[in-house]
Structure formats: structure tokens, C-alpha cells
Design a protein around this nucleic acid. Structure first.
Lengths: 114, 114
DNA sequence: TGATTATATAAGCTAATTATTATATATTAA
DNA sequence: TTAATATATAATAATTAGCTTATATAATCA
């Protein structure tokens, strides 16, 4: 057994959580960069509450962590999560989303720095 | 790029599909054995239409294939699917479900033979 | 301190998902 | 050909998910 095992019921819960375009893209972005809610609002052209509710679901499942930095709350992937190995594996099949953050930087809208 | 890439939107669709305890378990079982609907009905203690609708979703997404064998329709994992590498990867994190089929065999309810 | 900015949360609405019930189709066996 | 078995499908009902609007909280800045 070289890979980390996850109970099938818990795995289903995580996959349902990631089975949403917005949340899956968030997680892929967070895999290489930390982000705050207002950046996601820009990236997804979605309302602040909608984004906030998506990140909360990810946080409640332990997939992401939050750290306050001044008035911003920075979200990052929780690499300590029991699901992280599975998620990491999965993200390898998804195309890089760095262009989304690059656009923000070009518009001067990038907040967090790693 | 050593792993197969999947568009993020399509990946989200597949993850949502697998984000259900019943369907995820089905796919894990099918990864090592072919199965028919009536076996799944036994395994999941669910109604025949409920199971039929689950397998249909998997079939519509190209995740499984069907072959008729007499009065039974045998389902198997579609290893030709563009999503198969991702799914295979994912299944490696899930515990073996062979005990479910073993129980069927002990009760003499096993249909398909590979 | 009061205004601004970032974020969260609650309530309500709509859309999507899943199960149930009833019925249809297809194959096999008597 | 009739009955039994396996499966699918359609209609409907129940549950869940995601969005919007409105409002609350918390930090910063003037």
C-alpha cells in the first residue's frame, strides 16, 4: 500500500465537493498560490457571497485553511488534510490555471504574495 | 506531462458523478470485476430503478460500458474513456470492495464471471 | 471616531439531484 | 405462447445545492 487510503464514503463527500467547476478551479489555483476571497471574486466574476460560500465548504471539509492578513483572509491548500494525497493526485490531471492569477497581476488586483 | 490531462470543466462533471457513495463504490467494484444490475441491487440493498439510474449516469458519461449476456446486462469499466487514467488514479486511494462480491458468491447470487 | 473595505452569514428562491411508483421492453424457460 | 426474470424508463415527489439579497462583523484608514 503505497498511496494513502480514504474511506469510500468520505472520498465520495470530497469528490462531490470538488465536483463543481468553481471549487475545483479554486483548489487547482490554491495548489500553486495562496488567494483571498476578493481575488476569487475577480477571477470567477461571481458575487462575494457566492465565493464566500464555496470557500466555506472547502474549509469545512478541511481541504483549505484560512489565515487573516490584515483585512484580508488568505486561503491556502491544507497539505495536512487526510485527503490531500488524493486531491494532489487528482490535480495532476488538470491544466495549470496560473493565467488566471497573471491576469489579476496585470490589472494590479493581486493581493496575496507567497 | 506524464499524466493524461482533462479539461477542468469536464473533470468537475466526472467528480460530481463519482461524488456519490453508491456510484463511487460501483466504479471501485467494476475496477476489478464486471457486474450486472441485479448484483448491485443486492450489494447496495437499493431498488432496481435506483440502481438502474445510477448505472445509466455512469454509462452516459462514458465511464462504464454495457454488454448483454442473455437476460443480463453486464457492466464494466470503460478503460478507453478519456477519464479512465484520472479515475484509475483516484480508485487507488479507495479500499478494496471485493468482500461485497464475495458475500454474493457465498449466497449463490453471483451472476457474471470474468 | 466615522467611513471604507473585506468577508461572513442568514433567509429565501430556483434549479438540480435522487428516490419511489408504475409501467414498458427484452430475454429465457415452461 | 404464456410466465418469469432482468432491466429501462417515465412521472412524480422529496431533498439538496447554489445563487441572490440583505445584513453583520472585523480590520483599516482618514
Amino acid at each position: 500500500m503505497q498511496v494513502s487510503m480514504v474511506e469510500i464514503e468520505k472520498a465520495a463527500t470530497i469528490l462531490k465537493l470538488l465536483g463543481d467547476k468553481t471549487r475545483l478551479t479554486m483548489v487547482k489555483i490554491l495548489d500553486s498560490n495562496d488567494c483571498c476571497v476578493c481575488e476569487f471574486v475577480e477571477i470567477f466574476k461571481a458575487s462575494q457571497p457566492a465565493i464566500s460560500q464555496h470557500v466555506r465548504k472547502l474549509k469545512d471539509a478541511g481541504v483549505v485553511r484560512e489565515t487573516r492578513r490584515g483585512q484580508w483572509i488568505i486561503y491556502s491548500l491544507n497539505k495536512e488534510s487526510a485527503f490531500y494525497p488524493l486531491i494532489r493526485n487528482l490535480l495532476e490531471h488538470l491544466p495549470n490555471q496560473d493565467n488566471k492569477l497573471q491576469e489579476l497581476e496585470e490589472q494590479g488586483l493581486r493581493i496575496s504574495c507567497d
